[in-house]
Design a protein around this nucleic acid. Structure first.
Lengths: 346, 346
DNA sequence: CTGTTAGCGCCTTCAC
DNA sequence: GTGAAGGCGCTAACAG
């Protein structure tokens, strides 16, 4: 049979309550008693029964982290940062929390389902990373779910996602719009006037905001908008979209991609078409993922402080950092000018 | 107050037992009754209490996935594949399981702690991805932990990690040794004789096996081993290691890196040193991550079927695929020859 | 500082 | 096919 707390108590010659207090450390216990209990725990190789304690205490030490794509470093970096702050193994946060990441694949349904699963587990906190789907039906369902989670005592932090009003969720939003604007301004400054745009999937906040920033910059400069193609945030999408853009406008001099991964795919397509970067076509990305500085030519992009954002989100989720005023904080991106953009050829 | 199963029972005018049976679906219930219960669940917005049911049933629907570095696509791809098979949201596996990934950061202690946490949660299964640390003390602790988990009924699958005897764990191991060997043979065939090697962290199975394959190839060809530098599996390590290799042997004609990410960092260092790839120095990686085909020049590497391996691991963890004979299966890598390797200049 | 006493919410025999 | 009852292992008041 599996060892229970009662077994430990018997061996240590104390009451179960005392063992519980030692294990949870949130109650005064005599040093010698504690010692004895700990030894018994060790000898019996006792492992606390999580479900039982969660049931009795009406809270669990589980913290969920939702990501759109676990294979994408954009999310991996944030998730890792959150996890390091949540405590759990390594992060000397105190208790041992189980920080778990859930991969939604960008699907609204899965997002909701995971939230229900987390609610079912009575998660202590949930950090939701990345942009949101803007479909009104889903947005409504999402808001309702967040509200119920919050009511049940789960702390909610949105990391890289716009706020959801009236849910009690703390939001750390990226300034995608501002970043997109500065990026396009940079291209305009270089002299580009025919700029193709590879956008992310439609109906996503990230996609829309970056695109809006792009358009803002164009409008401010009085430059006509070029062709735009939508697609997922992956390299293949970038590859295909770039081909499509070239087909629609063989004379474009620059391509702005939804993110760095997409930009990489776009570069491959351009090269295949015999175009040099940046001599023939400039390319820009977004996020500044680790590989972006290493590719050839190095990618001009907008750096998002993914790690820092994750750290802050984790801290807030743990209540170890004050909530931002208005429960919302906007995190700016930084334009990184590198070799993939240059003046257009005459 | 939070809605409980009893509330649902009252509303549906049945006993709690019946509600439980409907929810778990593993017991005959009259269609009309079921209907009524389901409606009550909906109206009350009832969410099952996970801890309570786990306690009563002595099992949970939690499945853990351990990864060394969640920001590394190598792990992200496997984890995503596992998760898609585990069921949970999206994966039409049946029950709704909470597939969660835990980031160990490559630390043995955290690995153990996460396993304890998962054991505490009475996880239904655990999938451990990536290479293992070879320190005997840790290996022993690990084996013991796996044994205890297995005894408690948790199914264990190692994905991309060598088997751990006498633990009941199923192992899907990558043939790192064979892959490493073929890679170096390729370089030797091209005519390289001074090959620098950037190895992963010491005391890791993956590092050792790839390095052994490299040495096997050299020995078989009667070629002296070149310089070797160890470091983490990241781009920075590759960058620094390449500089170090060049310092130690300015005349090397090829560099084999521990993996693609490291190779990318190495390429950056080579370029900085004014060396062309592959004209001056050939570079090879390992894993064939998605970006590897897009970098310039495209990376020669060994493709590991990360996604497929994850899918299989997930299925086995769910008992939906027979265990491999001997509880172990070796998965081969495939040499991908691309532009980053060529004949050495005279 | 430590023991005693009730449940936490659900599942699961066992009867009907 | 459905209800009744006991207990899963732990925590949280209360006493002492």
């Amino acid at each position: 049979m599996t060892v229970t707390l009662a077994d430990v108590a018997a061996r240590a010659q104390v009451s179960p309550a005392t063992v519980s207090r030692v294990l949870n450390g949130n109650y005064p216990v005599a040093a010698t008693t504690r010692e004895r209990v700990l030894r018994a725990v060790d000898e019996l190789d006792y492992v606390l029964n999580g479900p039982a304690s969660a049931l009795a205490a009406a809270t669990s030490d589980l913290v969920g982290i939702l990501v759109n794509d676990i294979a994408d470093p954009f999310f991996g970096i944030m998730a890792g940062a959150v996890q390091s702050e949540i405590g759990g193994p390594g992060g000397r946060a105190g208790g041992e929390r189980l920080a778990v990441v859930c991969n939604t694949g960008g699907s609204p349904e899965r997002e909701l389902t995971y939230l229900t699963l987390l609610q079912r587990q009575r998660a202590a906190a949930v950090v939701i990373t990345g942009g949101a789907v803007e479909d009104p039906v889903h947005a409504e369902a999402m808001a309702g779910k967040l509200r119920r989670l919050a009511e049940a005592g789960t702390r909610i932090v949105l990391c890289g996602r716009p706020p959801v009003p009236d849910t009690g969720a703390i939001a750390l939003a990226f300034d995608n719009r501002g970043g997109g604007q500065r990026l396009t301004e940079h291209l305009l400054d270089l002299g580009h006037r025919r700029i193709g745009y590879i956008a992310g999937p439609e109906e996503r906040t990230t996609t829309r905001h970056r695109l809006e920033g792009h358009r803002d910059a164009l409008k401010a400069a009085g430059v006509d908008e070029g062709e735009t193609v939508h697609g997922p945030y992956d390299r293949r999408s970038g590859y295909e979209a770039a081909r499509e853009l070239l087909r629609r406008d063989p004379d474009l001099t620059a391509i702005v991609a939804a993110n760095d991964t997409v930009a990489l795919g776009a570069c491959a397509a351009l090269r295949e078409a015999g175009l040099r970067i940046p001599e023939d076509v400039s390319v820009a990305g977004f996020d500044d993922l680790p590989f972006s500085v290493d590719v050839v030519p190095a990618l001009t992009t907008v750096r998002l402080p993914l790690h820092d954002a994750g750290v802050r989100a984790g801290r807030i989720a743990m209540g170890r950092e004050p909530e931002p005023p208005g429960q919302t904080s906007v995190i700016a991106g930084e334009l990184m000018v590198r070799g993939s953009t240059a003046r257009p050829r005459k």
